[in-house]
């Protein structure tokens, strides 16, 4: 413990790299039309492919398992928002939001794929039900593919 106390914050959590807030706000603005204000009170860290959103610019000086919420993953193709980030921030979105009816919501929660008519750009979109965000879906060629994390899915029941 004494050794750990003397370590600097940077060497403790060297795998979390602080990244520019504007960079994140721009990505979310261009995909979902969110105002930059939505990100104002948070700082962003990259660890491997994931971007983490944390309340403070300084990480506390401990060996961290997590730092706030994983909000998106950076990959070769388009970046992917997490369902949990959309549930928290999705209410600020002004585009690429799809409102599902009861059947659609049921299929989304079951982790299904279904045809849909909606004004959406190809790629990741925000699925909502009765004005509340359910989570992330992939829109491709007129079909919506649920991206709900597997541990949250429920088999199709009424």
């Amino acid at each position: 413990m004494i050794l750990e106390d003397s370590l600097s914050q940077s060497s403790l959590n060297a795998d979390f790299k602080l990244i520019d807030r504007d960079l994140i706000a721009d990505l979310w603005h261009s995909r979902f039309g969110m105002p930059p204000d939505a990100f104002q009170s948070f700082s962003f860290y990259r660890k491997a492919r994931m971007i983490w959103m944390f309340s403070e610019a300084m990480l506390p000086p401990f060996r961290l398992e997590t730092a706030g919420l994983r909000i998106m993953s950076m990959r070769k193709g388009p970046w992917k928002p997490t369902t949990y980030a959309l549930q928290l921030l999705g209410r600020y979105a002004t585009k690429n939001v799809v409102s599902l009816d009861e059947d659609g919501a049921r299929m989304f929660i079951a982790g299904g794929t279904f045809e849909i008519e909606a004004d959406l750009e190809e790629g990741y979109v925000i699925a909502t039900f009765e004005g509340q965000v359910l989570g992330c879906a992939l829109y491709s060629r007129g079909r919506l593919i649920s991206q709900l994390p597997k541990e949250r899915r429920r088999p199709d029941d009424p």
């Binding site: 948070f42 997590t66 949990y84």
Partner: peptide, 8 residues
């Protein structure tokens, strides 16, 4: 959605 939590 707890964004101020750091787990140790």
């Amino acid at each position: 959605g707890a964004a101020n939590v750091a787990v140790t």
